[in-house]
Amino acid sequence: MVVRVQETDFDPGAEIAAATAGREDVGAVASFVGLVRGEGGGRRIRAMTLEHYPGMTEQELERIEAEARGRWPLQAVTIVHRYGRMVPGDRIVLVVTASAHRQAAFDACAFLMDWLKTKAPFWKLEETDDGAAEWVAAKAADDAAADRWAVTR
């Protein structure tokens, strides 16, 4: 398991290779990379600054990771999330899941992103072309996406 919160960029290929290095029990790797978009709510975005809660962020990501391992048979999980100022096209977040078969890898990867978006203490401040800076509001769609993983059995 790898959980990292860092200011610097990451290399998705290198992270995927590291997650499965030396293993012969992994038949499927799924990954998700989130990027900064240059448009939001009809406005041009010049940059985005991600604030976080050092200490809690790492703990929360580890709790989410443990939840995923409890639900799916995973051989490896990598979560890397950046903070600080980024510009459109920059990578923000990486999730890598490795399992014997593809369905667990796909599902765990989607679950981790959905839970991360509603639980990990990060906040986005968007700078628009006119120099204004605005905190991004949480989306109801993100809550709905996280809720679909509720344990009902």
Binding site: G34, G55, M56, H81, I92, V93, L116, T118, P121, K124
Partner: peptide, 28 residues
């Protein structure tokens, strides 16, 4: 969050606790 764990408004607080207030999260 109390002591770096999400909680509700009915959660107890005590001297020595770290209590954090923030808007709904928007990472990812």
């Amino acid at each position: 969050a109390v002591n770096q764990t999400h909680v509700g408004f009915d959660h107890p607080v005590a001297p020595g606790d770290e209590v954090a207030f923030f808007p709904p999260v928007t990472g990812g």
